[in-house]
Amino acid sequence: MELIADVFLAAGAFGAAVYCFVLQRRLRRFTQLESGMGGAIAVLSAQVDDLTKALATARGAANDSTGRLETLTVRADSLAARLELLVSSLHDLPEAEDRGDTSGDRRMRFVRSRGRRDSVEVAE
């Protein structure tokens, strides 16, 4: 009976050794950097680092653009207020008929200078 127990114990130890050997080979293939899961993890880790750097660069560019846009918006608001003031001041000017201006009846005349025969000047 003791001999049968020893045989079963040896068979169990041999089975455990084979099981450990198979696990060791699978783990080695799993962690190889060139072809296994370790390689995929290393590649993904490198991509995450690259994307983090790209995101930081994009965030900096967006912040710069936001600052410039805010500056331009403030400048445009001040210019719009100035233009509104100029347009409202134009309403205070008299009309063309009130000034005695008859620019609609005027014709353009062409006057040639005697120094140059090729150039033509326009006079009102």
Rank of each mutant, 00 (worst) to 15 (best):
I4M: 11
A5Y: 04
D6I: 03
D6R: 15
F8G: 01
A10T: 09
A10R: 13
A11H: 08
F14P: 00
F14S: 14
F14N: 11
A16V: 05
A17K: 04
Y19P: 00
C20D: 14
F21P: 01
V22D: 09
V22R: 10
R25T: 08
R25N: 07
R26A: 09
R29E: 12
R29Q: 14
T31G: 01
E34T: 12
M37D: 04
G38A: 03
G38I: 02
I41Q: 08
L44V: 02
S45I: 00
A46H: 08
Q47A: 13
K53R: 10
K53N: 03
K53S: 06
L55T: 15
A56E: 12
A56Q: 11
T57Y: 03
T57Q: 13
A58Y: 01
A58V: 04
A58I: 02
A62T: 07
N63W: 01
G67M: 02
G67T: 13
R68V: 06
L69N: 05
T71S: 14
T71W: 02
T73C: 01
T73K: 07
V74G: 04
V74E: 07
R75A: 15
R75T: 12
A76Q: 13
S78T: 05
S78H: 03
A80D: 05
A81I: 10
E84F: 01
E84H: 04
L85A: 08
S88Q: 11
S89H: 09
S89K: 10
L90T: 08
R99K: 13
G100F: 05
S103Y: 06
G104Q: 11
G104H: 07
M108N: 04
M108E: 06
R109E: 14
S113Q: 11
G115A: 14
G115S: 14
G115C: 08
G115M: 11
R116S: 14
R116T: 09
S119F: 06
V120P: 01
V120Q: 04
V122T: 13
A123G: 02
A123M: 06
A123V: 15
A123K: 09
E124C: 04
